[in-house]
């Protein structure tokens, strides 16, 4: 399927600058029956790495009607261990079969041994890990023959070794590897709040021309006496502060493909759809203002 990707990097079904939703098995049937007006869907490719069965079948049906984005959670780009070739092959097979408009992965790591945490652990923001992650991103991109987007993490602790501010590290990793950026505004809000960083400083360090996608999600609050730790659990509606940051961002910079992520306490489809429509409304307002086309 290499021939559907030309040298300019355009793909068979680009992800439009509209609102999309994370695709969940409990919603397969509703989506196939109702074909809701949603710009695109996003999946974790790791959930489709079985040999066969219903998930791949449903994905095929949904892909026939919607553009798709692959949001990987298993590459562990910041691990000291090498990128797993076997995992890349499985990822490439999904890319070839489903022709996603976007592919992304996280600025984090998830394995230190031969086993996997399946959680996204923060990096040590040093020159050493910057070189390492750039090398790993390049490896993934070379293997897939495509640019990927890198997502800023949510985090709850910082390492003393850190010598580079997260936003600088994040942008630098993308610039050096030729990757794009996936800005998770909820993660910016969560991390800045957990570490006392400035949200404005963080977002203004992000060059908009590198931003290919935005994520929005809900988080929970863990009360630790005087301190409130915000935990990025994707288990509730997007909070007001994050909606406001999102509106400000697209008002300033223009529209970007925007995903609503909802991965735990997953609601019935109409509730998720309401959140998507909310984002779409903001995108429409911005489109009208800038007189932009959708794609």
């Amino acid at each position: 399927m290499q021939d559907t990707i030309n040298t300019l990097g355009s793909v068979a079904a680009p992800v439009p600058k509209r609102a999309g939703a994370g695709l969940k098995p409990k919603h397969y049937q509703s989506i196939i029956e109702q074909l809701p007006d949603i710009g695109w869907f996003e999946i974790h490719p790791e959930n489709y790495m079985g040999r066969g069965g219903p998930p791949l079948h449903y994905l095929e049906r949904i892909r026939a009607d919607y553009p798709l984005s692959l949001h990987s959670v298993g590459t562990s780009l910041g691990s000291h261990l090498p990128v797993d070739l076997d995992h890349l092959k499985k990822l490439k097979a999904l890319v070839d079969r489903f022709e996603p408009g976007l592919i992304s992965e996280h600025l984090s790591w998830s394995h230190g041994y031969e086993w996997y945490t399946h959680d996204l652990i923060p990096l040590f923001y040093t020159e050493e890990t910057l070189s390492l992650i750039v090398e790993h991103i390049e490896q993934v991109q070379d293997f897939l023959g495509r640019e990927i987007l890198i997502e800023n993490p949510s985090s709850y602790l910082q390492f003393k070794q850190n010598e580079i501010p997260e936003q600088v590290f994040y942008v630098e990793a993308a610039k050096r590897s030729g990757a794009g950026l996936l800005v998770d505004i909820n993660n910016v809000f969560v991390s800045c709040s957990n570490h006392g960083w400035s949200i404005q400083e963080y977002l203004s360090a992000v060059p908009h021309e590198l931003v290919g996608e935005i994520h929005l999600a809900g988080h929970s609050i863990q009360d630790l006496g005087d301190t409130k730790l915000r935990v990025d659990d994707h288990g509730s509606p997007v909070c007001q502060e994050v909606w406001q940051l999102y509106r400000d961002y697209i008002n300033t910079h223009g529209t970007v493909p925007t995903l609503i992520e909802w991965d735990t306490n997953i609601p019935e489809f109409p509730e998720l759809y309401r959140e998507v429509c909310f984002a779409e409304k903001f995108l429409q307002t911005t489109r009208d203002r800038y007189d932009e086309a959708i794609v």
Binding site: T117, H118, D119, I121, Y156, L157, Q158, F159, K160, Q161, N194, Q222, L224, T227, L229, V231
Partner: peptide, 19 residues
């Protein structure tokens, strides 16, 4: 190795709990 604001164990425990 973890920055300490008096809550580094609680902060680490978010990861342990997630795992």
């Amino acid at each position: 190795e973890i920055e300490d604001d008096g809550l580094r164990i609680e902060r680490f425990n978010v990861y342990r709990n997630n795992f």
